[in-house]
Design a protein around this nucleic acid. Structure first.
Length: 421
RNA sequence: GGAGAGAUGGCUGAGUGGUCGAAAGCUGGUGACUCGAAAUCACUUGUGGGUUUAUAGCUCACCGGGGGUUCGAAUCCCCCUCUCUCCGCCA
């Protein structure tokens, strides 16, 4: 969440910044300011009363020791009690309301983020490798894989419904190879491999920003009050929740492979065919916990780490800076990596690398002790090493041959012995 | 799922109604000693909020979470969560 001190001290700056995302947010800032004012006033009253009560109670203790009568003092305090508990209720109510409001305010945007309304205003900053030319009629990954018996969408929808898939034989193996390949590269780049829980409590999702605002995107297990993770970012960032790190522990690099579960509410009709948009997909994730001073350098490095995977797989891609209107709720700045999908004749998102600055750190209460001994919030970053399912799509389509086979990228040779599948 | 034990500051661990924000030890910090270091000694070392120009002072809250009893709760009562041990079940 945004710092309330910052809202209080510089409301105009906050409003101006948030209005780059959405004009309506500035009204909410006004609401928060008003509540904050009220809250502080009430707290002041409350604490004065409590101070009086505490002093008198202390006196009673002393008097009783001396065997003196204290009934008068006790009566005085009894009169305070109702006022105190009434004020306590008021303060608690204001704080709950204020908290709920502020948890729904998105992060402030970094100054280098371009202004824009939607995804069309994102800016391309880099392109890697020429798009492939085919001297035959290409197939999309879905047709190709179904015809080869590598994917069974029909059976999957019978078992689980739409947007699920069954990968078979060589394609299932290719998926596993990709996961291992990404994890191995990430470990080479200094990331610690984590195997996290896939079911988490609401506090974890509040910590990373999916809750309270995006509940409808999440699968929820009613009986146990647990959510299926929409990304490994959630458990990874929460590994350090409620902790005070030593400055020399930073930066921390984590990587994890997990399935990701998303309801895709509001995506009706989008990417109906194929593996592009599924309710369940595998992803290898990168998370960094860093010092605030170095988080933007770390973001560049994180992006490079994700790009390296595509470069090694020899897949054409481009890098986009997301504009202010398209950037995610928790992020201050985001790069998307888009891979070339021949059948769609366009680039599609395959990784998203973000610096959340201290937005998640505040929510998850992740701090470090700086050299002066002061506790400060860390910065958190996350990025897809790559979304495995979409990488699979990109490989199938970009590496397809005239006779409907798929060439295995060179770097995967140590995971898959065949030349083609 | 059944039976029992427990949850206290960065860590270990005292504390069963009043001067306890909390003993003691460890860790960390500062200083003394030393050429320097170790050892030793002295002092010091929690978090968040309110007020404030202030990292000063004053003040409030916090001893797993929530509620209650009381003038007063780490301490008593109720509920919940989590951890540990044993039994059962189970990949």
């Amino acid at each position: 969440m945004i710092s309330i001190e910052l809202i209080r001290k510089n409301p105009d700056y906050v409003k101006e910044n948030l209005s780059k995302r959405d004009q309506i947010l500035s009204y909410k800032i006004d609401d928060i300011l008003q509540l904050d004012e009220e809250r502080r006033q009430k707290i002041k009253n409350l604490e004065e009363l409590r101070a009086v009560r505490n002093a008198k109670s202390k006196e009673i203790g002393l008097f009783k020791k001396q065997g003196q009568d204290t009934s008068l003092l006790e009566e005085e305090i009894r009169n305070l009690k109702d006022q105190i508990s009434e004020l306590e209720d008021v303060v608690a109510r204001i704080e709950r309301y204020m908290n709920d409001l502020i948890l729904r305010i998105p992060n402030l945007i970094h100054e280098s983020v371009p202004f824009g309304v939607n995804e069309h205003d994102n800016i391309e900053i880099k392109r890697y490798r020429d798009i492939p030319k085919f001297d035959f009629e290409i197939k999309d990954h879905s047709d190709l894989c179904v015809s080869r018996g590598f994917i069974d969408f029909d059976k999957a929808s019978e078992i689980s419904g739409g947007r699920f898939s069954i990968l078979r034989g060589p394609l299932a193996k290719l998926e596993r190879a990709l996961t291992n390949f990404m994890l191995d590269i990430n470990m080479k780049n200094g990331y610690e491999e984590i195997s996290p829980p896939h079911l988490v409590k609401d506090i974890a999702l509040i910590g990373t920003g999916q809750l309270p605002k995006f509940k409808e995107e999440l699968y929820f297990i009613q009986e146990d009050g647990l959510y299926l993770i929409p990304t490994a970012e959630v458990p990874l960032v929460n590994v350090y929740r409620d902790s005070i790190l030593k400055e020399d522990e930073l930066p921390i690099y984590l990587t994890a492979y997990t399935p990701c579960y998303r309801r895709e509410a509001g995506s009706h009709g989008k990417d109906i065919k194929g593996l592009i948009r599924q309710h369940q997909f595998d992803k290898v994730e990168l998370v960094k916990i860093t010092h605030p001073d170095s988080s933007y350098d770390e973001l560049e490095k994180l992006l490079n780490n994700a790009e390296e995977i595509l470069q090694l797989l020899e897949l054409p891609y481009r890098v986009m800076v997301l504009c202010s209107g398209d950037i995610g709720f928790s992020a201050s700045k985001t790069y998307d990596i888009e891979v070339w999908i021949p059948s769609q004749d366009k680039y599609r998102e395959i990784s998203s690398c973000s610096n959340c600055e201290d937005f998640q750190a505040r929510r998850a209460n992740i701090r470090f002790k700086d050299e002066t001994g002061k506790n400060r919030f860390v910065h958190t970053l996350n990025g897809s090493s790559l979304a495995v399912g979409r990488t699979l799509v990109a490989i199938v389509e970009n590496y397809q041959t005239k006779d409907g086979k798929i060439r295995i990228p060179k770097v995967l040779k140590e995971y898959i012995k065949e030349e083609y599948i």
